[in-house]
Design a protein around this nucleic acid. Sequence first.
DNA 1: TCAGTCATGACAACAATGATGTCATGCCGA
DNA 2: TCGGCATGACATCATTGTTGTCATGACTGA
Lengths: 143, 143
Amino acid sequence: MLYDVLRHVRPLVLNSARVVETSLRFDDLTVGMRAVLEVLAEQGPLTVPVIGDRLDLARQGIQRHVNDLIDRGLAESRPNPAHRRSVLISTTPAGAALFARIRAGELARLGTMAAECGIEEITTALRVLAALHRDIREEAGRS
Amino acid sequence: MLYDVLRHVRPLVLNSARVVETSLRFDDLTVGMRAVLEVLAEQGPLTVPVIGDRLDLARQGIQRHVNDLIDRGLAESRPNPAHRRSVLISTTPAGAALFARIRAGELARLGTMAAECGIEEITTALRVLAALHRDIREEAGRS
DNA sequence: TCAGTCATGACAACAATGATGTCATGCCGA
DNA sequence: TCGGCATGACATCATTGTTGTCATGACTGA
């Protein structure tokens, strides 16, 4: 049963990435940059390794996305009072505004989907996914 | 709410791919080859374009995985009675046996996960994911 | 204080994979 | 029969996750 859940999520991620990507292309963004922008917009200034933890990705790849965002003026680095080398990354006003617009568009599209599912069903799905994610994440960490 | 579902599935896919990949590395397989092998093992002989439809991927990429599988003796092509050029791809006995072993291992690992979720909750999650997948797939197809 | 260890940024190389384009050829419907 | 389409085969490219390296700052324990 969980096996069928996992079988569904891969094409789901693929297709949602495609949908998101076509919208993003207009703004010259990639899905990776969008993911980093989301974390920055929601969780305030963070260091690159911390962003990697949030997204379950290595810091090296995050660094690329952050550099790309800075090049586009969507993110900026500020001094980290707790660490001289490890700077804090945050969105610029332009980056925050862009991500707000992107998310609004995505929410509008999502609003029409899975219409037959009630809020309690979606909540249940979210809980199952969170539990599965937690345990698979732990299993992945063992390697 | 659906937004939070989508936010969970991406790292979930990433981490499950990592877990699966470490097991697969032992057999010199990639996740792409494993995905094709799964479709072949479950849905009998199929043409390359049909496999692509099942996985929501372009036939060109599938062709690479199929060629790799054939190189390893895990899949083979047989004449297609309905089409002279478009051959049918099927698993070899070795391929079927390998995938059965792989899946057994994966199921064993999955058995310990999301233990606090009941069968009806997982069923609900599956239904929500299927509905979301269906609508996002349609949205992706429009581009 | 000092030495060893770790975290971090910066940079590089690589592999997997999905996207895209092309071309020749077989298939199918008008 | 002819034109459009599907298919295999081949090629190229971009994204992205992985891995390794190195210098430097931070931290910990003796």
